[in-house]
Amino acid sequence: MTEESARLRVKTWVCATIVVLTNVFGDYFLKRGMSAARSIAGPLDYIATLFQPWVACGVVLLLAWQLSRMALLSWADLSYVLPVTSIGYVLVALLGRVLLNERITSVRWAGIVLIMAGVALVSGGTPPQTTYREVVAP
C-alpha cells in the first residue's frame, strides 16, 4: 500500500507539473495575442482571432493543458487537483516579475504565501486519491 501510494504520488507530481506549465504559458500567449486584437463583435471575429500566431500557440498549449488535466483527474480527486494546480498563479506572478519586470506588491506577496501554504497543506497532508477507482488494464 505504501509502495502504491508512493507510485501515485510521484505520478501525480509529474502530471500536475505538466498541467501547471501548459496552463501558465497557454494563458500568457493567449493574453498576449488577445491584447493585440481588442475588437470582437461577432462569431466570425472569434474564429479570425484564433488564427493569430500568439493566440494559436496559446490554444495549442491550453489543449495540452486540458488533456493532461483529464489524465490527472482519471486518478486524482478534483478537490486535490484544484488547490494543487493553483500554484500556477504564483508562477504567473513570479514570471511577470522576472520576464516583464512587473512589481509584486505586498498584497500580492501575501497572496503568494497563502497559495503556497494551501498547496503545501493539500499536497503534503492529503493523498491524491480518496475514492476507489477502477484500473484500466494496460
Binding site: 493553483s86 498584497v107 501575501a110 497572496g111 503568494i112 504565501v113 497559495i115 494551501g118
Partner: peptide
Amino acid sequence: GALLVICGVVLVSL
C-alpha cells in the same frame, strides 16, 4: 488548504 488558496488567488490577482 482550499480556503487558503482561494484567499491567495484573490489577493494575487487583485
